[in-house]
Amino acid sequence: MSRTRDIACGVLGLALASAYYAAADAIPKSLLADEVGADGVPKALALSLSLLSALLLLRAVRVRNAADDGETQQASALQHLRALGLVALGFAYIWATPHLGYLLGIALLISATALYYGSRPGLSLVLSASGGAVFLWAMFAKMLDVQMPAGIWAHLLG
């Protein structure tokens, strides 16, 4: 288990290192730059990452039946998908909030997350979602004066 994981990690690390190197190489040159240059340290980082990834790969290939590092048991593909669903919720929230406004957006996020975690739909859910949303909104938008999207409401009512 740990071996396949290390191999995948090494391969991805190498890929990331080369992409990052290419991006570093594309940084425009400036006459204000020093000898190291804006791309100097990033390139060194890319090289270190590829070396480390290669080392990891090599070790994983050489050590055949290495004991698992004692890390947590592996989750099944279905469980991974469930966890990713939470990220999907997050993206949906970020996409919808500029339209719905922070207050409604956050209330929906709270209820959706709670539902996702398996709480039952009902009055208590609605109450905690609206209460939480009003609390967060009062805290950020009103007390701390953080700019929050007002959503379509401002157009409809203003």
Partner: peptide
């Protein structure tokens, strides 16, 4: 019906606040 009324209430609340904040 109850949830709908609650959401309606929240929307109204937003409306009041938004209107109140209009310069």
């Amino acid at each position: 019906y109850r949830t709908r009324r609650l959401i309606g209430g929240i929307a109204l609340g937003i409306a009041v606040i938004v209107l109140g904040a209009t310069p």
